[in-house]
């Protein structure tokens, strides 16, 4: 991905950073405005459109019945997939998910799986033979930095609003009652918070210009009890132990804010 940024803009950002300011006048630990629109796609079992600033993602959950994996016969299956759409940025191209999209999918997947947002055993219907498979598809519609948090928030909101048809088994025969939709039982909610390192400073929710200058970033996922459930450092530069610890502290505080936003949905 090639990002072209003018010299004067870059110098401006660095000057402001030295004065502890950001180019869009946020403080270092401020998120941009977050909007969440749940049940956006009628045809999906669960869905949400989430914007953080101008970055917009739509997540949709589609459920189907399938056979469980042989190494987890009493659990359902969740598959997370991210598409960076060509409409979102002039640097995104059509084609199968590239390494950036795959990384986002996998980090979001771990945030959901390790929390776990839902108990995978709840997705099992008949052990060894039938279970729910949930496809969480994340569509990035518009890009202005911090896709990771936007995608994760969209995926979690979509899961929290997912309703599956009630399933009954009579003599081993599976009956799906599409007139009787029930919410997925939520086990542990989780949120992801990404911190970018830019010229030695740690910034929450980097915008696209900040990301184009950033040295490295770290994404940290928290459960509601404050424990960490997933982490990912991405980017070429290094982080010191102090920077990682400081990032965890900042991210923990921001995760409280994100949970209070999640409280408002539904």
């Amino acid at each position: 991905m090639v990002n072209i940024l003018s010299q004067i803009c870059e110098e401006n950002i660095i000057d402001l950073l030295n004065q502890e300011k950001r180019i869009d006048e946020r403080s270092f630990d401020d998120y941009r405005d977050i909007t969440i629109n749940t049940d956006y796609i009628t045809k999906a079992e669960g869905s949400a459109m989430v914007s953080i600033g101008a970055t917009t993602a739509v997540a949709g959950v589609k459920a189907s019945l399938t056979t469980p994996f042989s190494n987890s016969p009493d659990e359902g299956i969740i598959i997370t997939n991210t598409e960076l759409l060509a409409i979102a940025s002039r640097n995104f191209e059509y084609g199968p998910p590239n390494k950036f999209a795959v990384e986002i999918s996998r980090v979001v997947d771990r945030t959901i799986r390790e929390a776990p947002v839902i108990d995978f055993k709840d997705l099992s219907i008949v052990d060894d033979s039938t279970c729910w498979k949930l496809h969480i598809d994340i569509y990035i519609l518009d890009f202005d930095g911090n896709i990771m948090d936007t995608a994760c928030l969209a995926a979690v909101c979509a899961l929290l609003t997912t309703k599956l048809p009630r399933v009954t088994t009579v003599n081993g025969e599976v009956n799906v009652d599409y007139d009787n939709m029930v919410s997925l039982p939520v086990k542990n909610r989780s949120v992801l918070c990404s911190i970018a390192k830019l010229y030695g400073q740690l910034l929450v929710d980097p915008s696209a210009v900040e990301e184009s200058l950033m040295d490295t970033s770290i994404s940290i996922a928290f459960r509601e009890d404050g424990s960490i459930c997933a982490m990912q450092k991405c980017g070429l530069d290094v982080l010191t132990i102090e920077e990682v610890k400081k990032s965890i502290n900042i991210a923990f505080n921001k995760s409280r804010e994100l949970f209070s936003i999640l409280d408002k949905i539904k």
Binding site: I41, S64, H135, D137
Partner: peptide
Amino acid sequence: CKYNMAPFSVTERKRPG
């Protein structure tokens, strides 16, 4: 011109691509 359907846009999930 590219016309593309989201996996969650239809009743049965559509494979991306």
